[in-house]
Computed example of a mutant assay.
Amino acid sequence: MFKAIETDSLFASFVKDTSNALELYKQYKINVMKSDSTWNNDQQRLFKIQNFGYTNKFELIPLVENLNDGKTFRKAGGISYLIRTDNFTILFDTGIDDDSIECVLRYNLDLLGIDVCEIDAIVISHNHGDHQNNWKWINDKTFINSKNKSILPEMNIFVPCDSLNLKIPALLFNDPTKICKGVYTTGIIKAPLFFWPTQEQGLIINVKDKGLIIVTGCGHQTVDKLLLRCKRISDLPIYGILGGIHFPIYGDSEKYMGYLITGRLPWEPLTVSDVNKKIELIKKQNVKLIGISTHDSSVKAIEAFKKAFSKEYKDLKTGAWIVVK
């Protein structure tokens, strides 16, 4: 391990002072053990959800994504998805931008002709700025209605961690939790990232006669655990996976992105071979729909998924609906 640190100039350039590397490594190993223990305990005590419920239709439209559908949408970092079921609308994440007055997602909602008052609940996947916009939307004009009144007090807001001091009512549930008929969170799953340990939740939606669709923010909790969590709480088949799954291949992405926040040690970055192994894992589920966010997976990873799932793959583009019914 020390040899890896000593010979890794990129690691040295990032941490500046490598004398603290051993403590970082020790804390990382402690975090791994803690997260593994929590994961194993959670999996063992969870049971199948009875009467999961279903929705006849599932619609997802990216409000914030790297790609767009050709209109004059504003661009921002991270992701934000609007999800519609039969009788319920969920905003999943809010992206990030530098506009201090209004979130990009509100501008894009208005451009699409979608009334912000349609949103029934907000689910934030994890506490990274590119998925919660540094919580600016709590006080800006993003969720102001036509009467210049905030609609936030009227909706459930599901957050991924405590001690946020958001000063608005927010809901935190460790276990898979019902959002509406046919829709549950995955529950909180911890990810022991080397520098920034985090915990993340996704969504699981049951579409009638199809199966479960997993919607993820970054996928720090790993594809493996997302699939295992679905199997733990339901016997329904996994129909699809949409969102970020965090496959930034080293050398094919932003300098540090493919290096530090992959859930591995910095000097053991992701490779094409690693991505192919995950593809094989997903293919065993016989999924019929898959779309990977380009905000946290690199070009080679996306290309590998498109090749492996030529018929099942859908691009996630701002303003482009994905509809299952």
Rank of each mutant, 00 (worst) to 15 (best):
P266H: 07
L111E: 12
K306M: 05
D120W: 10
I157N: 08
E200H: 07
D115G: 07
F309M: 05
C103R: 03
I233H: 09
F2P: 00
G251L: 06
Y25S: 09
I144D: 03
Y28A: 06
E6C: 07
T294M: 13
S125G: 14
D274K: 06
L22M: 14
S150I: 11
I261Y: 14
V15Y: 07
T55V: 08
V275E: 09
W135F: 15
D224W: 04
G258W: 05
T142R: 00
V272M: 15
F195N: 06
D86W: 04
R229P: 04
I96E: 10
N206V: 11
K29R: 14
G243I: 01
S273L: 09
T185W: 06
L226C: 06
I138F: 02
K210I: 00
S297G: 09
L24H: 14
G243W: 02
I124D: 01
L60H: 02
I204H: 00
D115H: 05
D315F: 12
K306F: 05
D140S: 08
N68K: 12
L270Q: 14
A304D: 08
D98E: 14
Y239C: 00
D115C: 10
N165W: 06
D274T: 03
K278D: 14
L212Y: 05
K311G: 00
V64G: 00
T94R: 05
L212K: 08
L111I: 09
N20Q: 14
K136S: 10
K300Y: 07
M33R: 11
N66F: 03
M155R: 15
G211S: 07
D98V: 11
S293P: 00
W137D: 05
I49T: 12
K26N: 15
I290R: 01
K190V: 02
V207D: 04
T271S: 15
A121F: 04
G95V: 09
H220E: 11
T177W: 01
I204C: 12
C161F: 00
L289A: 07
G291Q: 06
K307F: 11
G219K: 01
K231D: 15
R232F: 03
G78M: 05
I30E: 15
I30G: 02
F158T: 07
I168W: 11
S273F: 07
L227P: 03
D296A: 07
A12G: 05
R45V: 12
D175M: 12
I282C: 01
P266E: 09
N40L: 14
I279M: 04
S293M: 00
L10E: 12
I279C: 04
G251T: 13
N41Q: 14
I261C: 13
K190D: 13
N66T: 13
F14A: 07
I322N: 00
K306A: 02
S19H: 11
H126L: 13
I114N: 05
E23D: 15
V104G: 02
G244T: 12
G95F: 09
